[in-house]
Write a protein that binds this DNA or RNA. Structure first.
Lengths: 203, 203
DNA sequence: TCATTGGGTCAGCTTTGTTGACGCAATCAT
DNA sequence: ATGATTGCGTCAACAAAGCTGACCCAATGA
């Protein structure tokens, strides 16, 4: 992995070992930069739209995940976002009051609330998505399919076990809103995450 | 690969072209997920350390960029972070008071403040870096050199022109803390960015 | 029947961003 | 040399989105 990839920074004075060490470190610092700038600009588009509507990034996340998985319960959503009930509430309640998100009682367990986008919610989510799509599509096209594959691989690698599981459930093949195998282990897996495992602050 | 995955909310019926379209969309939505989870876990490590010290992510960013480019002026730093003077101030002032960052008057222009890490600042930045290094190194190793190259390419592609320029200046070949070609065009380029071009909120 | 679970809510605190308005010193242009 | 501009600092007030702790209700399930 070391040799070819680099070319980076001139490194200046150096013995061989020093150089290797330096290159690796520079590589990692570059990764930090890339994630900072990249993520920032990735979110900039939707942020602008949201601001006009008096919403923020947190609203977008809810819309996004409900768009991906209509029928998520409140608890599952909490597990995905890894925030507290109260934090979610402050964003979810307005979204429901303004008619972007609708609730329905769970069929298996009537304590649960199944969340889904209303047509207005879908429209807004769509709009935010399209804006972000421009950014990502451009990046993907500039980079090419092989790079995209690599990008995915690395991003997945940055994630901890919980996030990987959450991602699996989100992008898994079993598309149905309320999956065929709904509670069995899915609930068991989601439950511990309800009180976020990683206390994480997430810009 | 097409048929199983659909079921999407409104999607409903589908012809061939529709399906292609869907695949692209699923790819992009996956990218959104990856960036959300990936970035979150990427920052989780340092966040934990910082919390113990009563600091936040904003402090880390300052330490990081000063670590990369000792001798940055306040204005340049503002341009990189794309936040307001006041926001930076609230984080920079404590960092100086607690002895992590030192100022020195600019030599060419004595109005400027050249910022640099003190030894304590370097130590802290190092600690944060090492923590993050674990995360990134693991991801890089799991993914392999080709993927890393792709990752970089895509991340760069997500960035707007301003961020690309900032990144160039940061990772550029001219390593010296206070570069040999300091003011000439560097200042000219940095200046317009001083009042952030993108109003951006940046988690 | 009664403890547990899923969900909601009140109240208060923190971090990190934002505006707007000034003040001071150094630089630059007329 | 004077006056405008620029680089930096600071006061004040506000907003978004996290957090904790304390309670409450209704549905489940042992």
């Amino acid at each position: 992995m070391p040799e070819g990839m680099d070319t980076r920074a001139g490194a200046g004075p150096a013995g061989a070992g020093r150089n290797l060490l330096f290159l690796r470190e520079e590589e990692l610092r570059l990764a930090q930069d890339l994630l900072f700038f990249g993520y920032r600009d990735f979110t900039a588009g939707p942020d602008a739209i949201l601001a006009e509507l008096g919403m923020g990034r947190a609203h977008h996340r809810v819309l996004h995940f409900l768009g991906r998985r209509p029928g998520l319960t409140v608890g599952e959503l909490l597990g995905i976002l890894a925030i507290t009930k109260q934090s979610l509430s402050r964003v979810l309640t307005p979204l429901m009051q303004q008619g972007y998100v609708a609730q329905s009682p769970g069929r298996a367990d009537r304590r649960q609330r199944l969340l889904a986008l209303t047509p207005e919610g879908e429209a807004l989510e769509r709009r935010l998505f399209e804006r972000q799509r421009e950014t990502v599509t451009r990046a993907y096209r500039e980079a090419g399919p092989v790079a995209v594959e690599g990008f995915r691989h690395v991003m997945r690698g940055l994630m901890g076990p919980d996030a990987r599981k959450a991602l699996e459930r989100l992008s898994g093949t079993d598309r149905p809103s309320v999956r065929a195998t709904p509670p069995a282990d899915a609930r068991a897996a989601a439950r511990p995450a309800a009180r976020p495992v990683v206390p994480g602050k997430t810009p």
